[in-house]
Every structure is written in C-alpha cells, then in structure tokens.
Amino acid sequence: MIDLIKTRRDLHQIPELGFKEYKTQQYIIKYLESLNCNRLEIKKWETGLFVMLKGINPVKTLAYRADMDGLPIKEQTGLPFQSIHENNMHACGHDFHMTIALGLIQHFVDNPINDHLLFIFQPAEEGPGGAKPMVQSSIMKEWKPDMITALHIAPEYPVGTIATKPGLLFANTSELFITLLGKGGHAAYPHHTNDMVVAACSLVNHLQTIVSRNIDPLDSAVVTIGKITGGTVQNIIAEQARLEGTIRTLSATSMSKIKERIEQLTKGLQIGLNCTIEIDYGSNYYQVFNNERLVNEFIQFSKSTKIEVVECQEAMTGEDFGFMLKEIPGFMFWLGVDSQYGLHHANLAPNEKALEVAVEHLSRYLTWKGNLS
C-alpha cells in the first residue's frame, strides 16, 4: 500500500519548474511500475504522463488531472523534508495533487471498477501552461475521457472540507509585459531625451482607468502592475522601462475588451510621448467553468458522506485546467488543508491529513461513478 505522507514528502523535496519536471516524472514512473499491474498503461508526454487504468467492463472513461510543477520560491518552512532544490518550492500544493493521484491509482489497482480511469500528470501549470497542448495531444485524442475532475488545495478551509460551485470557479487570466523604448541622455539635458520613467508612470495611471471606465460595473476584472523597472543610474534619463503585471476577468469578453483598451492606450502614448511600446501577454489561461450537472451531482454525492461541503464563490485565481474543461465535461473543487499561510507563500504547510481525506472521498466517488450503467 502507498504511504501517502512519505510520497508527498518525497515529491515535496524535488520541486521543478514548468517543463523541467524530469525527476518528478521519473519518481512517478518508478512508483507506477512497482505496482506490476497489467491493466496499467503509461505514456509519456513531454515531462508529463498519461496513465490509463483499464476497467473490467468499460462503458466510459473517467479522468483525474494532477499538476506537477513547483514555483521559483525559496522555501522557508524549516521542515525536515523541505525542498532540496534551492529557490524552488511546491508552494501551490502540486505535491499534494500528485500524491492523491498516486493514492487513487493504488486503490483502483487493488479495487477495479467497470469503467476506464485516466490519470493525467500535467506539467507547467504555473507557466507557461501545459493543459492546452496536453489536451490537444494525440494521446488525449486517443484516450479522450468522457468526464474529467481535478482538485486544488485550499489553505483557508479546514481538513475534511471541500468547496466548489456550478459554473465559473476560476477567472480568465493573462500575464502582461509592456516594454517602453525612448531616448536616454544626461539628466541635465531632458529636452534632448524621451524619458521612459515618465512614460511608464503615465501608462500605469492610464491602465488603472480601464476597469473603472471600460468594464461593466456588474462584471469583475483586475489589471495589476506588480513590477516596474527602468533606467540605469540616478543621473541618466531612462531610455527603457518595463512593466510586468496580470489581467484577471470573470468573462472572456472582458478579457478581450481589456486587451483592446491596453492597445489603444499604448498607441496614443507612443504618439504623445514619442516612444515605442511593445506588449507581450505571456501565458493566458481560460476560465475554469464547472459543468453544472456533473458538479451538482458531485456536491450531492459529497453531502451524503462525512465530508463538509461548502458552495463557494468564484475566485480571481487562474488555472489552466480551464482548457481541459473547455473540451471535456467536468469540474474542479477546493480541498481544505488548513494552513496558516496561503498559496504561493514560502511558509505554506498544508495539513497532511487531507491526503487520506481526498483519496478516500475521490475513490468512493469514482467507484460510484465508474460502476453506473
């Protein structure tokens, strides 16, 4: 039987960034091969994996997705099993997500059900995004499931609680990188230059009008600039500046509107301040939109067990699982892990009791779902 805590701690020690999950992939393969199950088929995809566990009388295929990558964060938990990869950390719970998947595979190896089960170990959720190319892959086309589910740890909820809702759960998100190019020069001769610090400050102010003046007040959107860099030293007028930020919306229409407005504002600023502006939207994640019938079915099933169910509000967080839900009916839910520190924090320490809770609950749900005629 799998030792969930040991497995999670093993994975926690080797966080790897997107599309660099080589050790993580090998760890999972080694464990799966140790099961010595002839109903199990493994196919590599980049640094991820598709794992098919064949049913005994299949009618459909049910899928569970677990993301694999860590974050470029220096861990500060002080735990004896903290990351051995300096400046990388599983600060978003993907070590939990993978461990739960392995626990489910172990359970269904020992307790087969009628339907096929597909386990998707997805790289690069934190960026640049593995879900979209994975769902477009030939393997997914061959093994395309009829339903898919995934979970995300939630530090704010106690262990034994899950939270979800029909419809929109996570927002549309886009990275935002804006480079401004002008003409530098001596600080004593500003009239011979085009100052990109001034241009960057002006642009930030303009960007903050988009949500308040261009988006329906009954909708929700965020445009945040989290980082500004520019110039070289104090007595040289900056020839270049760069803004880095994020866009988050509760509708795909608002995302398009915000980008359109950013481009209009930058065109005007290029003329007004005689500079060149380049925009890069980086990684873009589609909204996580839960299938109403399936998530309501899951909620009702969960309420019949000892699990505490919370019907939560949508969040402005982003998750590329939305690309999978766009193609395959399914849902995502929050798993309570009761941590003092939140997601993406260097001190995040989820309660490991949640591992058993998740494996037990999902194994019951998938058994019920996978044995329906």
Rank of each mutant, 00 (worst) to 15 (best):
Q122E: 12
P155D: 07
L243Y: 05
K257S: 13
N235Q: 00
G129I: 13
G268M: 15
Q25R: 03
V357S: 02
N291M: 07
Q264W: 14
K74A: 09
E126R: 04
F119S: 04
A221K: 12
F121T: 02
F19V: 15
L49G: 10
T305P: 00
S254N: 15
I56V: 13
G268K: 09
E175H: 11
K60Q: 11
K30M: 02
E263G: 05
G184I: 06
E311I: 13
T229H: 06
A187Y: 04
L40I: 12
E311L: 04
P58G: 12
V109W: 00
F119L: 06
D338F: 03
K74H: 15
G342H: 03
S220R: 12
N88W: 01
L35W: 09
S202C: 05
V198W: 01
E314H: 14
V211E: 01
D195V: 10
G160Q: 09
R364M: 08
F121D: 06
I56Y: 03
F50R: 08
H94M: 02
T24R: 02
L325S: 01
M316K: 06
L366K: 05
N290V: 06
T232Y: 09
P72N: 07
S212H: 08
M316P: 03
L4A: 10
Y286L: 13
E86N: 12
Y189K: 15
V222Y: 05
L362S: 02
